[in-house]
Amino acid sequence: MADADTETIVRALFSTAGMTLTDEQIASFVRLYPTLREQADRLWAIPEVRYEQPALLFDARTDR
């Protein structure tokens, strides 16, 4: 991923989240983003997780 692409993505993500960061702050996340993305993508590459259920619990009752 080219730096220019990364910067575009990072700026878009923060903009979508309604957060205004300085150019210096954005630059730090442009450096960080490929590592974070790689860490997240590794979880998608584990075949055993393909049909796994998420570890979420929801109880439809509200009186417990």
């Binding site: 979880l43 584990i46 997780v49």
Partner: peptide
């Protein structure tokens, strides 16, 4: 990504 992490959590 967050749900995938949660699926990984089960695994």
């Amino acid at each position: 990504d967050c749900i995938q992490a949660s699926r990984f959590r089960t695994y």
